[in-house]
């Protein structure tokens, strides 16, 4: 009886402890977001840093985004075709792939790729600057390390992700078109006419809105874990890992929240 009581009490204790930890972590991230909005309008605006981050997050991700987009579109075309052929609506492959890409796959997969690539890089860079006292050096010079490092990264990621998602969408559709018309022998004219009939600007808009928020949250999490680093190189490794894991989880959770709002306001 005593053992059962101990088991239950320790389980409840563990759950309570995890819950408190989770909530305080969430509170710290919300506080971090407030700090971003506090520093955002403050001078000086660091254009050089912003451009450098736009290049790092945007330009350097182009190849991997385009490659992932092409193969996602091609695979989607195959999968959709063999399903739709059974009910003789294979001419709808184009719009179905395009809509899936525009509303979900392009923003979510671009988000996951950027979380893995840039979110981790942000945590590692800021974290290693922290353990080597470079953040202290900035502060001693009278420069806010937050304004100098976090603000340009968050702006850059929020601007880059919609662009990367658009490229993913475009290349994905090109891949789908080639597989549909060359390998699956769907008539090109029908492919385009169906696409024009079922695909609207609002559908692309939904994806772009989502990617903006994904870029924001990925960079907030990446920079947050970078600033939080403690205990040397091991701490940097841990922060990098956490930035990727929580960046990806945040994209998926935010995707659900944003979808439930966007379908209400912009239609399914």
């Amino acid at each position: 009886m005593n053992k059962i009581y101990k088991f239950f009490s320790s389980t409840v204790e563990q759950i309570g402890f995890s819950l408190i930890n989770g909530l305080s972590g969430l509170g710290r991230i919300i506080n971090f977001i407030f700090r971003f909005f506090y520093w955002l309008p403050k001078n000086p605006f660091r254009l050089k840093e912003l451009v450098s981050q736009l290049y790092d997050i945007g330009n350097k991700s182009l190849f991997i985004i385009a490659l992932s987009g092409a193969f996602t579109g091609m695979v989607m075309a195959y999968q959709t075709y063999f399903g739709f052929r059974l009910i003789s609506v294979d001419s709808l492959v184009g719009p179905v792939v395009a809509l899936s890409l525009a509303k979900e796959l392009a923003p979510v997969l671009s988000g996951l790729i950027v979380a893995g690539r840039s979110g981790s890089a942000m945590a590692a860079h800021i974290g290693s600057m922290k353990v080597t006292e470079q953040l202290d050096a900035l502060e001693v010079m009278g420069i806010s390390s937050f304004q100098y490092l976090a603000v340009p990264r968050i702006i850059a990621a929020s601007l880059c992700l919609p662009m990367l998602s658009s490229i993913f969408l475009f290349v994905g559709n090109v891949g789908s078109y080639f597989v549909g018309t060359k390998a699956l022998m769907i008539d090109g004219t029908i492919y385009f006419s169906k696409l024009g009939k079922w695909m609207f600007v609002e559908d692309i808009g939904q994806g772009l809105i989502k990617s903006f928020f994904f870029g924001f949250i990925i960079s907030v999490i990446g920079t947050y874990f970078g600033f939080k680093v403690e205990k040397g190189a091991a701490g940097v490794g841990k922060a990098t890992n956490q930035a990727v894991v929580w960046g990806m989880i945040s994209v998926l959770i935010l995707d659900y929240i944003l979808t439930s709002f966007l379908v209400q306001f912009m239609g399914g």
């Binding site: 290693s128 600057m129 006292e133 470079q134 050096a137």
Partner: peptide, 8 residues
Amino acid sequence: FQYAALFD
């Protein structure tokens, strides 16, 4: 700084 803290 102890280890100079140069921006790497």
